[in-house]
Amino acid sequence: MIRLDNVSKSYGGSIIIDSVSLTIPGNQTTVLIGPSGAGKSTVLALIDGIEAPDSGTIMIGCDPLTPGSAPQLRRRMGYVIQDGGLFPHLTSRQNIDLMAKEAGWPLLQRRARVDELCALTRFPANALERYPAELSGGQRQRVSLMRALMLDPPILLMDEPLGALDPVIRAELQDDLKAIFSRLTKTVVLVTHDISEAAFLGSTIILMRAGHIVQQGHFRDLVARPGDPFVSQFIHAQLRRLTTMNEGAMQSFLRHR
């Protein structure tokens, strides 16, 4: 469980996170969603202790997160940064097992763990010796995910892991992620722009706008009992277009039969 209490953060005078309180339940997937610039990435950075809040407290499990405790607490968290953050000078394998090596894992154990993760994320083993520049976008995302999972942390923070992927790969990875999450039973916090992705992957959805939490709940709740006009607006902006386009596509599909 992760808890934020009255957490605020500002950059250069403008308030980015405005007195946010929220609880992220353990062992399930929570999706942070909201328009660009809402502060989603900042919330993840705060949880990981990369950024320190100006005020408020953050609890990771039962431990308060402070600049002093952050290095320690961070070991419980795997963090996939918004654009992957892979080290370009290291191969996929070196990226993945860097921390295990630092922790002194023997070679065989590291190899076994990487093989396991390749199977889990359906990453082709022959691409392990390639550099990030030699991988496709989807493969890079898988490497980032493996790197975050390497030391088997109980918490997984993922910032738009499926951004900038083509729809087919994206759907495939969504399936994979869902399978992985259900298999691993971790506390997952995932950021996305996409409401259908949020609905598909998350048990809880947190909708953010301009540094505030607008509503937190199941997708059903957000649709059925929007706490704010913005909620329905945000959900329907994406779904309506999809439905109308689907209808059009369906009709032309039927016509041409």
Binding site: I50, R74, F87, L98, R147
Partner: peptide, 25 residues
Amino acid sequence: LSIRNSAIALGLSPVRCLQLVELPM
């Protein structure tokens, strides 16, 4: 910044981050 942040997020100490990531890059 994303590279540096992901090095810290991984748990590298500033010195190791310099040695393993920043200086090679």
